[in-house]
Design a protein around this nucleic acid. Structure first.
Ligand code: MN
Ligand code: MN
Ligand code: ZN
Ligand code: ZN
Lengths: 131, 131
DNA sequence: AATAAATATTGACAATGTTAAAAATAGGAT
DNA sequence: ATCCTATTTTTAACATTGTCAATATTTATT
């Protein structure tokens, strides 16, 4: 997809080789990679890229609304190219993260939440992904 | 509460002064403190306690099922003395974590989750706690 | 080409947590 | 009480994740 280059231009970010490589990896892998995984993989095609540049790019993409961050396993941030509202399922065995479409679940209130103004929520499920 | 000492004995853990101090803080403060907060506060009554001992004790209590861990704000683990099933609300402004009783919310499936065996789940809500 | 602005790299740093080795402590046997 | 042993605590080193400032490089503009 040449689309990756467009993504950067469209939000006013200069499309440098490093940024293109990061965008390419994260939007084509369609997973929930952490910064380190992104760095390792991007270096296959862009061997000189530095850790700081990866973080700079990822944080920029988050600021531009093209990525979301999540913390679902361990203490490391994962970058989520799915910016629509959705829930998550984390496999106990593999640590793999799966998107659960928003309309799969319905969260309703039995009792009213007095004094809590909810801006956003999600359901996080853990268990086993069946083979 | 002398109860703290009982808690340790009951699960076969030798009740040392350090462990008693950690248990006392975490079960009496009733919040969702991180290890650093626990260390700081426990040092008020037990000034020589080391970071490693705090982590050792907390990990031990988690292994014994007396504490749960959560990662709800930033990337730091918080220790939760509420080991019953419950949901969480995180205040955007203060970072404060609130327990939402399990029966306050109901999560239902509109569509069946094919291939996902759910062992556990929780709803994480974010927003503003009204003054 | 010369200049200025934006970006990338490097290396230092902070925060969080784990680990191994040494020192201190507590309990039990004699 | 003294000795012995197992447990626990402390210390210090280390790993990981992420940020930051300074420097070097690249890019755009003139
Ligand atoms: Mn990783
Ligand atoms: Mn803290
Ligand atoms: Zn996702
Ligand atoms: Zn809780």
């Amino acid at each position: 997809m040449k689309n990756n280059l467009e993504i950067l231009k469209r939000c006013g970010v200069r499309p440098t080789p490093q940024r293109i490589a990061v965008v390419k990896y994260i939007f084509e892998s369609k997973g929930h990679p952490d910064a380190d995984t992104i760095l390792e993989n991007v270096r296959k095609t862009c061997p000189t890229i530095s850790r700081a540049t990866v973080y700079n790019t990822l944080n920029l993409l988050v600021a531009k609304g093209l990525l979301q961050t999540q913390i679902l396993k361990g203490r490391t941030v994962i970058f989520d190219p799915n910016t629509q509202k959705h829930h998550h399922f984390v496999d106990d065995a593999t640590g793999k993260v799966f998107d659960i479409p928003w309309d799969t679940l319905k969260v309703s209130q039995n009792k009213t939440l007095q004094g809590f103004q909810v801006r956003d929520y999600q359901v996080i499920m853990r268990g086993r992904r069946e083979s």
